[in-house]
Write a protein that binds this DNA or RNA. Structure first.
Lengths: 122, 122
DNA sequence: CAGGTTCTCAACCATCAGGTTGACAACGCG
DNA sequence: CGCGTTGTCAACCTGATGGTTGAGAACCTG
């Protein structure tokens, strides 16, 4: 099993790895907008922006509804949680480790400089 | 100059968009390891893993030191903050917007009661 | 219905990303 | 010193990504 959420994570991170797409998200955070409105400030074709929006949509970051020939784009903040959870998990783990190492070094400072660079502690 | 931290964000998000690299980060969160140790579980060459580590390093997620011919890899959790901050900013903005919309709809449900008085039974 | 507006789809192209293999640098050890 | 161990670098291949243009679907409006 390839873990369902792994793929979502991959798509979300990949989606946000592009500056244009991050900017789109940033602008959508303050309100929905149509494709044309979103495309206007960029020096690229409308089609290119449409593609970017498709990527964001497939990552679950955005939903496109239908209003006549307009496609209002709406930011869907839910997926952010997935990322934040992933990040926080390992960040905290790493920081915890860091604190322990810190304490260990403090402790060793009392003793002689016996290079304890042994690994294989598992 | 395209904004210093934008480039870092791009590199961090791109780095974590790969499942192998996310797994490396996950494993490094519980302790430093050498390239060989890290490469062992994967069905890919050592060189490939070395490349992945380079990407993580250039994203600032990892540092490689030098111990004889070994290169112990260490997870550097600091950069996570950059991401979390970016994410949280827009997530909160979007959620705030959502709450306001919600309130608006609630409000309308209260005092528009005279408009839909007729069920329009058709 | 004709015509303008808004947007997506398809084909194409250049560049990048992730993998391979082969060569070799740097180091510890017998 | 010579050799095995550990890891990087370089060249190469393939598929994905980000952009383009052209065509046309879908919809309002006159």
């Amino acid at each position: 099993m390839v873990d369902e959420s792994a793929e979502r994570l991959t798509r979300v991170f990949a989606a946000l790895a592009d500056p244009t797409r991050r900017d789109l998200v940033a602008r959508l955070a303050s309100g929905d907008a149509t494709v044309g409105e979103l495309a206007e400030p960029y020096d690229m074709s409308l089609q290119a922006v449409s593609k970017h929006l498709k990527v964001l949509e497939e990552a679950g970051l955005v939903t496109r509804s239908k209003d006549a020939q307009r496609r209002p784009v709406h930011l869907d903040a839910e997926v952010f949680d997935l990322m934040t959870k992933w990040i926080e998990r390992y960040r905290q783990q790493a920081e915890e480790r860091y604190r322990r190492l810190d304490a260990l070094l403090d402790h060793m400072a009392d003793n002689t400089d016996h290079t304890p660079t042994r690994k294989d502690a598992s």
